[in-house]
């Protein structure tokens, strides 16, 4: 301590000088416009660059979270689309002021495992029964159809991919409305076959295929793919159509599980119909 004071006294002139200079700096920056601008600018330059660097680093870390939230937002927005609602307008004259009842809701999920090379390809997603996922729900992605939910665990679920011999999706030609079954015949992950389109239907290369909504698994009108090749074998009543999928199932990361809120009512009704026969 004594030494400290000794140093303080010995260099008192320097300390006084430093103190007064600091005071001057403060006064200069405080009371002189041009110097203040320079000071603020240069400090902004430093802090600004730092903040930018920090931000870009943090953005990268936050990216998965951002994607998740975007996915949620997408699900919410898709549910708002009119085609995903069941129109009450033509069946009910007045149900308070609600003309549209929500028919489909969407549960966003991430793909945790995927395969495209097998005979029966299965996709695993990171949402299960706790998120409200049930068997036979449809799974779509932003630009096409992915498959149907098969096994449901508490936190995970498996999806029968379109690229599976068990998959059988009902799709329709957007232009004419005729529908057929989309099946996979082990070719490659981008192409599938469309069966059961009768030969009197005009089919052209490039015709768009959409989901029908008949199966109550997918909402109707989701674009599936395009006709790439349509051949009519002699003596055959149905076309031999090759379809190029709109989405690339080899590269699917975020999906939406489709929840049909009116499914129970529909299946119950259909079951009663069967009993009657």
């Amino acid at each position: 301590m004594q030494q400290f004071f000794a140093i303080l006294v010995k260099y008192s002139a320097f300390f006084l000088f430093a103190l007064l200079e600091l005071l001057c700096f403060y006064l200069i920056v405080q009371y002189n416009d041009s110097q203040r601008d320079i000071f603020l600018n240069s400090s902004n330059l430093i802090t600004g660059t730092l903040a930018k660097k920090y931000n870009s680093a943090v953005t990268l870390i936050r990216l998965p979270k951002v994607l998740d939230s975007l996915q949620m937002e997408n699900g919410r927005l898709m549910a708002e689309l009119r085609r995903n609602k069941y129109s009450l307008a033509d069946t009910t004259t007045r149900v308070e002021d609600t003309l549209y009842l929500q028919q489909y809701s969407f549960i966003p999920a991430r793909v945790v495992s995927n395969s495209i090379t097998l005979h029966n390809n299965i996709i695993t997603i990171d949402k299960g029964s706790t998120s409200g996922i049930e068997q036979n729900m449809g799974v779509i992605m932003n630009d096409g159809v992915v498959g149907v939910v098969d096994q449901v665990g508490k936190y995970y679920a498996t999806v029968i991919s379109l690229l599976n011999s068990k998959s059988n999706t009902s799709v329709a030609l957007k232009s004419s409305g005729y529908f057929g079954n989309l099946v996979w015949n082990d070719s490659d992950p981008l192409h599938m076959s469309l069966e059961a389109i009768p030969k009197h239907v005009p089919v052209h290369r490039g015709d768009t295929l959409v989901t029908t909504g008949y199966s109550a698994i997918y909402p109707s009108g989701i674009m599936v793919g395009k006709v790439e090749q349509a051949a009519l074998e002699p003596g055959n009543n149905f076309y031999d159509i090759t379809v190029r999928l709109n989405n690339d199932l080899a590269n699917v990361q975020y999906v939406m599980v489709v929840k049909n809120l009116l499914k129970e009512d529909r299946s119950k009704t259909e079951k009663e119909g069967n009993h009657d026969q």
Binding site: E21, L23, C24, L27, N32
Partner: peptide
């Protein structure tokens, strides 16, 4: 310091002459 402040008051540049003169004295 005091003399520098006096000059700065006339120059309207508080601190600039003062810091220089304090430096000179040091």
């Amino acid at each position: 310091f005091v003399m520098g402040m006096a000059i700065d008051l006339f120059y309207n540049s508080i601190g600039v002459h003062t810091s220089a003169l304090v430096f000179t004295a040091f």
